[in-house]
Computed example of a mutant assay.
Amino acid sequence: MSLPPRTVRRRRMAAVIALAVVVAAGLVVHRLAPSSVATDVAGDALYAVAVYTGLVMLFASARPALLGALAVAWCVAVELFQLTGAPVALAAAFPPAALVLGTGFDARDLVVYPLAVVVAAAVDTTVERRRGMTAGERGLESA
């Protein structure tokens, strides 16, 4: 099933805007929020949503389930990569690398990432379904 080019463009543009908002929120949490378990979980969730949204931006015609699986796979791979110590060395040489690769393994992240991606994919699916409905269908839905 192929999406019409207009739908792909619209989905890609929405993903660009959403990614900018998510990255901004992540930077606010990283820089301004006091360090706590809650801010760590929020940052992890925003990271996973940013990965998902970035994939939507790149592959706007793909199904949310596929993009969700890829996003979770990326997040888990990055988390496991942290066990090697390489991200710490990269962050020492280039500090912004820590925002993408992290620095220390945390098993809790392996739970947060899939949960955040499921929420992002559900929102994506809901938005696209609503956009696909005609005004008349929306009116019937609320009746």
Rank of each mutant, 00 (worst) to 15 (best):
L27Y: 10
S36L: 11
S35V: 15
V21L: 15
R10I: 11
S35H: 14
A86R: 02
A60G: 13
A77I: 08
V112D: 04
F94K: 06
R130G: 10
A14L: 15
Y47V: 08
A116I: 06
V37N: 11
V76H: 06
D106M: 12
T53P: 05
S61R: 15
L19S: 06
A60P: 14
A121D: 01
R138I: 12
L27M: 14
L140P: 05
R130N: 09
L90D: 04
I17N: 00
V119K: 05
A48N: 02
R131Q: 05
P96H: 04
S142W: 12
H30L: 10
G26F: 08
G102R: 01
A45Y: 04
A25V: 12
S61I: 05
G132L: 06
A45E: 10
A93L: 14
F94D: 10
P4C: 05
V56M: 09
R10L: 14
V119P: 06
W74K: 04
G132E: 06
V8F: 07
S142H: 09
E137D: 12
A92H: 00
V29P: 10
V117W: 03
L70E: 09
H30G: 09
A62Y: 13
Q82V: 04
A121T: 00
L19W: 04
F59S: 10
G68N: 01
D44F: 06
L66K: 11
P114K: 14
L101R: 00
R6I: 05
P4K: 02
S36V: 12
Q82L: 09
T125E: 13
A143G: 13
E128W: 11
R131N: 09
A14P: 05
G43Q: 03
A45G: 15
A25G: 13
A89V: 04
V112P: 03
A18E: 09
R129N: 11
A116M: 08
V119I: 14
A38T: 13
M13Q: 13
L32H: 12
P5E: 04
R9F: 04
R131S: 08
R9Y: 03
E128G: 07
R6Q: 04
R6E: 11
